[in-house]
């Protein structure tokens, strides 16, 4: 990316978001106040080797009009202090906002988070489901300055992905069962199902394993085929070279 070249030190930063954060954000969005356009909040997580792992988040009440934005800093501070007691290793890594696009007030909020973290990430979670798709985008800001005069803030997009740990996957899969079945009864039934139903999960694992084996054997088959072709062609070439050296074209091929 051309833009990343201009950001020394952060060029290969990427963002990984745990699903629990997304679920919390969605819940916060549903619980937003009346007439409120979007919700914003702080993201907590850890930074390891240029990967920003977002593990937790909390909503910060705010109020915005066309030209100004009021963020409840008190709330932000108390929540952060309290969550620090539970997980002292998690630091502020940025902030999130719901909505499909960037807002005009975003630079102001970004400016605030600049004081809280070295490279605050701005995560935009699209809760409007534009194009019938759920999407998350992560941005990093950099100032656009002319001489000493600060003109504007530019947001640069970062690669952003969700990361599902094994244990979270178990939970997510549980939530998914019954989703593919459209009848409302089935949904209710799956919800009632016992959690320790081993048979079903075992079946899923088995199916995935079988799939994996099939793919591996497919791959091996392909490799073997390709190797065989290469081998035969090399053999042929060797024979031709040999025939050339011996000055006879009548050398039997095999």
């Amino acid at each position: 990316m051309a833009s990343s070249v201009l950001l020394p030190g952060v060029s290969n930063l990427s963002v990984k978001v745990h699903p629990v954060v997304l679920l919390s954000i969605c819940d916060a969005y549903i619980r937003r106040k009346e007439h409120q356009d979007r919700v914003i909040g702080t993201l907590l997580g850890v930074v390891v080797d240029n990967v920003i792992e977002v593990k937790n988040c909390y909503v910060v009440p705010h109020n915005e009009s066309s030209d100004q934005v009021l963020v409840d800093l008190n709330h932000h501070k108390t929540m952060f202090d309290m969550l620090q007691k539970v997980a002292p290793h998690e630091v502020i890594v940025g902030w999130f906002a719901t909505g499909a696009d960037l807002y005009n007030s975003d630079p102001l909020i970004q400016e605030f988070y600049n004081k809280e973290s070295t490279h605050p990430v701005h995560l935009v979670v699209d809760t409007t489901l534009k194009d019938n798709k759920f999407s998350i985008k992560a941005y990093l800001s950099r100032p656009l300055a002319f001489g000493d005069k600060q003109l504007a803030t530019e947001f640069v997009q970062l690669p952003c992905d969700t990361i599902v740990s094994d244990i979270e996957r178990v939970g997510a899969e549980l939530m998914l069962t019954g989703l593919n079945d459209p009848s409302p009864e089935s949904k209710r039934e799956t919800a009632n199902k016992s959690f320790s139903d081993e048979g079903e999960t075992l079946q899923g694992s088995m199916a995935r394993l079988a799939d994996l084996v099939a793919r591996a054997s497919d791959y091996v088959q392909n490799v073997v085929d390709a190797m065989m072709v290469t081998y035969l062609s090399d053999l042929l070439r060797a024979h031709v070279a040999l025939a050339e050296r011996l000055g006879t074209a009548a050398l039997p091929i095999m």
Partner: peptide
């Protein structure tokens, strides 16, 4: 909303 998100994830 969350269901949609989970399905997407």
């Amino acid at each position: 909303l969350v269901q949609a998100v989970v399905a997407d994830l």
